[in-house]
Each structure stands twice: as C-alpha cells, then as structure tokens.
C-alpha cells in the first residue's frame, strides 16, 4: 500500500477507535464521539465561535512564531559571527527552554497585557528549537567550502552571506516544522491565562459548563490549526531542500 493510503487508513482507524471509546462509555460522558463533534460544526453559531477562535489562535501562534524566528536569527547570527559568545548563548537558550510553562507564565503576565500573553508564550516556546536549528544550520556548511572561503580571503560576513546562510536554510526550515506546533501549544496555554480571544477560552468555558461536544470540537480545531501550520512549514522545507539542499 502507498504512503497516502496508509495515512488515510491510520486516520480512519483512529476515528473508529475514538467512536468506539465514546460509544462504550469507558469514560462516561466526557468523551464525545466524532459524530457528536461533527454536529457541533454543523451548527452555524457554534461554527462561527470556533472559527473566530481559530483565527485568533492561529494569528497569535504565527505572530509569536515570527518573533521567535526573528530573535533566533539575531541571536544565532551573533553567536556565529562572534564565536566567543556561542557557548554562553547556547547555555542561555537551554535554560530558557528548561523553564516550565507554569514558571514562565507569571513573568509573561507581569510583562504583557492578558491579550498579548498568548503571543509571548508562543514565541517563548518556539524560540529554542528555532535557535538550535539556525546555529547548527549555520555550522552545516561543508568543511571544503569553509576552507575555500578562507583561501579566497572572504571576510566573515561574506562567508556567512555566501555560504553559511544558504546552507542553513534547509536545516532552519526543518526546525520551523518542529517549532510551529509548539507555538500553537504555547499560544493556547497563554490563552488559558486569562486571554479573551482564541480557542483556549472556548475550551475553558466549555469545560466549566460541561459542554463536552463543544470542548472536543475546540480540541479538534486546535489540532487542525497545528496541522495546517505544520503543513505550511513542511512545504517550505520541501522548497528550500530542493533549492539549497
């Protein structure tokens, strides 16, 4: 069987298992069957609420991701141009990534307005994988090309521009693929901290009012957002791998 056929089979099996778990009531009424969730999307007003929330969350995730990418590029290029900064910056990045969400949340709440926290949280979670991908990408240039640049008398910034950055792009886009679902995750968690927009608050309200079909619909929407953005990054990765690989 081909790859796509197997993928479809996997999704069908997953949906069937989900339907079975819901029908057998293994978890009482907390697990709603896919057929019930579909009915939520069929309802115009619920659909409107979910789509608005999805739009807001997607925007936060992408915006946060953009800031994280910008920060990773600035810090990564700095670490490459000034090698003595490299190990220190790596340590700092590792520490940043090791801080749990719960610990970083109060800091972000103190720094930003409640509606900006999701974007900040998305940026915080996406930063480290992007930084790692960028610095390892910038170091990925072949030793022979690095030697060539040195022998041609290329200045450090010329080597960066002509050899290191093009060589880094495929590695960076692979890192983007890893980082974008984290940005969605960070965004949703950021929304739980009191934001008024996005899919996060919808989830919380549905949970508190025990509107399980709505909650499950919100979960599905979150997954779809993550998959859409992931697909975008995967496409970008494919293009850069062909152009710069």
């Amino acid at each position: 069987m081909t790859g796509p056929a197997l993928a479809v089979l996997g999704v069908v099996l997953l949906l069937a298992a989900w339907q079975a778990v819901a029908a057998l009531r293994w978890f009482g009424t907390t697990v709603c069957a896919p057929t019930v969730v579909v009915r939520v999307f069929a309802d115009a007003s619920s659909r409107r609420v979910l789509l608005d929330g999805a739009g807001a969350t997607m925007l936060e995730a992408v915006e946060g991701f953009g800031w994280a990418l910008l920060a990773a590029v600035v810090v990564g290029v700095l670490a490459t141009l000034l090698p003595f900064l490299r190990s220190g910056l790596d340590q700092l990045g590792t520490i940043e990534s090791a801080i749990p969400f719960v610990a970083i949340a109060p800091i972000l709440l103190a720094l930003f307005s409640r509606d900006t926290v999701p974007t900040a949280m998305a940026a915080t979670t996406a930063f480290f994988p992007l930084y790692l991908a960028l610095v390892s990408g910038l170091a990925a240039v072949s030793p022979a090309v690095a030697d060539l640049c040195a022998a041609l008398g290329a200045a450090r910034r010329d080597t960066l521009l002509r050899a290191r950055i093009p060589a880094a792009l495929p590695v960076l886009t692979t890192g983007m693929k890893t980082a974008i679902p984290l940005a969605v995750l960070g965004g949703v968690i950021g929304e739980w901290l009191g934001s008024s927009n996005g899919i996060g608050p919808i989830m919380l309200v549905a949970m508190r009012n025990y509107r399980m079909p709505m909650m499950w619909a919100a979960v599905v929407v979150t997954v779809v957002i993550a998959l859409l953005l992931y697909g975008g990054c995967a496409a970008l990765e494919w293009v850069t791998a062909r152009r710069f690989g």
Partner: peptide, 10 residues
C-alpha cells in the same frame, strides 16, 4: 585553490 572535494556551492 582546488581540492579533491570540489567545494562547489550546491
């Protein structure tokens, strides 16, 4: 310079 590895930018 020219090396055994052609060091061309792919």
């Amino acid at each position: 310079v020219a090396f055994q590895d052609n060091a061309l930018l792919p």
